[in-house]
Write a protein that binds this DNA or RNA. Structure first.
Length: 812
RNA sequence: GGGCAGGUGGUGAAAUGGUAAACACGCUAGCUUUAGGAGCUAGUGCCGCAAGGUUUGAGGGUUCAAGUCCCUCCCUGCCCACCA
């Protein structure tokens, strides 16, 4: 018999599904809306790779089951095509990004179609479409009006290769520093896009005030049904620590040094103060202290050296702590009233807390190392039971209580500090939405009036980044020259574009705007009714690498939109699961290794159904797996046998056999549970076991086979549709009812009972019905092999688990 | 340094505290054929001709029973990190 012609089948059903709108829910009238979303891809480089497909198929299987359970499943698709990644690719191939976007778009959508997902194609969107980024800009304007977008000059991350600033979240650990050594505050890591080492620059930039939401972002996490690793990563990134602000007076001056500490209970043991090299007292204001500080030159040279030190130099120094005392001035410990020295040292970071610490060498490892080197006093103030000593009237007090009491004594303030920094939103690049702001010398910064949106990105011939801290748009006079929306005078536009991660922070809302051809805007009544119906997202699947990037921004922006009364939810994603990564023979797939797998060639050879099912069969979906192309043939054989079985005569003449019925029912439960928990690999394996038995039985009814086809349909949508519609013309299997597990269908005809003596399994009894302990014991005694274990020994006790195991414990 | 995953055959992996290795790849032998990226049958953790013994990174513990629970340690991967 011929094998199944997957090429013909897949092409045919793709067309029919699209024509009949099988996967298009009614945006306006859906009764049981289910928003099933997978992170949309960056359309760059060589097209969709097998890792993208893996994630999309995994998301689709979940959605297909929901659809068959009666939900109106919305599974939209689009392209995150604005931004540095796409622009860098365009630069590499020497094609204008707008032109390249059109090329990539065609390629991606074609690939996405061939893999057989139930996408709502009518609602597709691209972030570089001006209909879309009009609203990206509109959101920026609302953020500005609410005071959540602001300008500030500060040290920021600069990627020398991408020639733009980056947000903290977009700077990743340097590959060379993944093991062990600390990294400096000056050189933080590598660019998330191009892995170039990031440097620090002082620039004026636009920021989003994500820190206003630090507490809310942190506190809501526990309520979310999200993968634990993402929740933990977000908690760590937000990085709240509770402590106190305490002021230390500088003797004989008007200055205070404010420090942050998590351990105010150890204040009596604070024997010196350390300032970070970036501390404000060492900047312009030092001149007021100049006459008092004796070694000003020495300090200045230390500060300059510290600021310019690279991470590599630091490692060469062996991570040893260095510092210089500010000679001539002393601080006063507000608890002991004793004079203590003040140091500057680069082990204290300028970017955290107050950029200054009180040092307690007796109870802090870093302070201890520093104090030892510079021979500073150390006073122990806690005993091994965490009770205070050497702390005046607080002696004997519990450390936890002392935190509050001592802070109170010195007039400190209990507070928290966060690791989270405000989101740097400006990019000195071309391929993004221009930030919709206008600067007027008289009226300062003004937002572009909403009626003038979108501010279209002009077509610029030389779109490459200039590297002078300015976007290529800063050289386009016709773009930046404008009028002040407030006074009508001469003004200039902002020429930076916004971060790509702003585009992707609201795209799930965008999909719901497409169906009206972008006529219904965020904030309109009609739109808010649609949003209420569909949002928040019911199920979101994506990569764990976005734990502190996209997944943090999407939450923050939803909270901000909520406070702007534009949406009625604070958390945009009810359920999130991180998919695993596909690796190739133990190694990560990467362009440099040349081991990127393109799904196209496998679809060509085996068909999309086979590749889909194979990918899901590899390993648990949340774990990821190793792509070995030898093993794919096993799935092809399986589907081909299913195809041949559907054509066989024995199927048509089969009767309703009880044994198969029981097994089908168990498989319904197994597959349903496994899809819910994303354990697709074991779902497929149980379908194989069932099918192996159906083949052997040679007595399978059509309706039994149909149940099997339904269970298989989320994994292999094309072949199951072909088989289904042979039996039920013009009715899609994907709109059929998902089979239900029936508790009443049971019937173990055989129970396998393991026979153990003292916990060691010595035999296996295959018995009919469900025998009790006595009956089993009689059989064991009759069995020559098993009874030999009983010889001459007394039975101490027997543990009997019906239908499973009997353990006979013998007395020696 | 901190956190989170993991560690089971030749390979990908299964296993509500109850028959370790299901399912699949590969391999071996035999059969078969419109010689194909085929199909069927049997076998396949390790030691052993067999009977049987033995096996889940190492070592302890709890239990009638441990891959699974507890403790100590080792290794691999990912994330965070001089964060006060």
């Amino acid at each position: 018999m011929n094998s199944f012609d997957f090429k013909k089948i897949e092409k045919k059903w793709n067309q029919i599904w699209k024509k009949n709108g099988v996967y298009e829910p009614s945006v306006l009238r859906a009764k049981l809306p289910f928003y099933n979303l997978m992170m949309f891809p960056y359309p760059s480089a060589e097209g969709l790779h097998v890792g993208n497909m893996y994630a999309f198929v995994g998301s689709d299987i979940y959605g297909r089951k929901k659809r068959m359970e009666g939900y109106d499943v919305f599974e939209p698709i689009g392209l995150d095509g604005f931004g540095i990644h796409s622009e860098n690719y365009a630069i590499k191939v020497g094609i204008h990004p707008a032109k390249q976007a059109k090329i990539s778009e065609k390629k991606f959508y074609k690939q996405l179609e061939t893999m057989g997902n139930g996408f709502a194609w009518k609602e597709k969107l691209e972030t570089y479409d001006s209909n879309y980024y009009k609203w990206t800009q509109w959101i920026f304007v609302q953020m500005f009006k609410k005071g959540l977008a602001y300008r500030k000059k500060q040290e920021v991350n600069w990627c020398p290769s991408c020639k733009t600033v980056l947000a903290d979240e977009q700077v990743i650990s340097a590959a060379s520093s993944r093991k062990g050594e600390p990294r400096s505050d000056i050189e933080r890591g590598e660019c998330e896009r191009c892995s170039t080492k990031v440097i620090r620059k002082k620039l004026e930039q636009w920021f989003f005030k994500i820190t206003d939401y630090a507490d809310k972002l942190l506190n809501n996490i526990d309520k979310l049904d999200w993968s634990d690793k993402v929740k933990i990563a977000q908690k760590e990134w937000i990085g709240r620590s509770d402590g106190a602000l305490i002021d230390f007076k500088i003797r004989n001056t008007a200055y205070d040094i404010r420090i942050f500490t998590t351990r105010p209970d150890t204040l009596f043991g604070a024997t010196y103060i350390v300032l970070s090299p970036e501390h404000e007292l060492l900047g312009d204001r030092i001149k007021d202290l100049g006459s008092k500080v004796k070694n000003w030159k020495e300090i200045e040279s230390y500060v300059n050296k510290a600021k310019s030190k690279s991470r590599d130099e630091r490692i060469r120094e062996g991570g040893e702590k260095t510092g210089v005392e500010l000679k001539g001035i002393k601080a006063m410990n507000p608890a002991t009233k004793k004079e203590i020295p003040i140091f500057v040292a680069d082990y204290v970071l300028g970017s955290y807390g107050m950029g200054a610490i009180m040092a307690v060498p007796a109870h802090d490892q870093r302070d201890f190392e520093f104090a030892k080197k510079y021979k500073l006093v150390s006073v122990q103030v806690l005993d091994d039971k965490e009770h205070l000593i050497n702390s005046g009237k607080f002696n004997g007090m519990d450390s936890k209580k002392a935190i509050i009491e001592i802070t109170k004594l010195v007039g400190g303030k209990i507070t928290s500090q966060f690791h989270l920094r405000d989101w740097l939103i400006s990019r000195q690049r071309y391929w993004g939405p221009p930030i919709p702001m206008i600067f007027c010398k008289k009226c300062a910064w003004q937002p572009v009036p909403e009626k003038d949106l979108p501010i279209k990105l002009p077509v610029v011939k030389d779109f490459r980044p200039q590297g002078k801290g300015k976007s290529p748009l800063a050289f386009v006079k016709s773009f930046y020259e404008t009028k002040c929306p407030k006074c009508g005078g001469k003004a200039t536009r902002e020429t930076d574009v916004s971060d790509t991660f702003l585009d992707s922070a609201w795209y799930y809302i965008g999909y719901l705007m497409v169906f009206s051809s972008w006529k219904l805007g965020v904030g309109s009544l009609e739109f808010s009714n649609i949003a209420k119906r569909w949002l928040p997202i019911d199920m979101y699947i994506g990569g764990a690498e976005h734990s502190v990037l996209h997944l943090l921004y999407i939450r923050f922006l939803a909270m901000a939109l909520h406070d702007l009364k534009l949406v009625d939810f604070q958390e945009p994603v009810k359920k999130f699961r991180a998919h695993g990564l596909i690796i190739k023979e133990g190694a990560k797939m990467s362009k440099s290794k040349g081991n990127i797998i393109n799904p196209d060639e496998y679809i060509k050879r085996f068909g999309a159904d086979t590749l889909r099912t194979y990918l899901m069969f590899l390993a648990p979906f949340e774990q990821g797996g190793d792509f070995r192309d030898q093993a794919i043939i096993g799935i092809y054989r399986f589907l081909d046998r299913v195809w041949k079985f559907s054509k066989s005569h024995s199927l048509k003449h089969g009767t309703h056999e009880k044994g198969i019925e029981v097994m089908i029912n168990q498989t319904v439960k197994k597959v349903s549970d496994d899809i819910d928990s994303l354990n697709y690999n074991t779902a497929i394996s149980s379908l194989m076991i069932l099918f192996n038995n159906m083949e052997k039985s040679n007595n399978v009814s059509v309706s039994q086979f149909e149940t099997f086809i339904k269970l298989l349909s989320p994994f292999a949508p094309f072949i199951t549709e072909e088989i289904w519609q042979k039996l039920h013309p013009c009715k899609s299997v994907h709109l059929e009812k998902w089979p239900k597990f029936n508790k009443k269908i049971t019937g173990h005809q055989l129970s396998n009972i393991a026979v153990q003596f003292n916990g060691k399994t010595r035999g296996l009894l295959k018995l009919s019905g469900s025998p009790n302990q006595e009956e089993v014991l009689v059989i064991i005694k009759k069995d020559s092999k098993l009874s030999s274990y009983l010889k001459d020994l007394r039975i101490d006790r027997i543990i009997f688990i019906p239908g499973k195991v009997i353990n006979i414990v013998l007395k020696p």
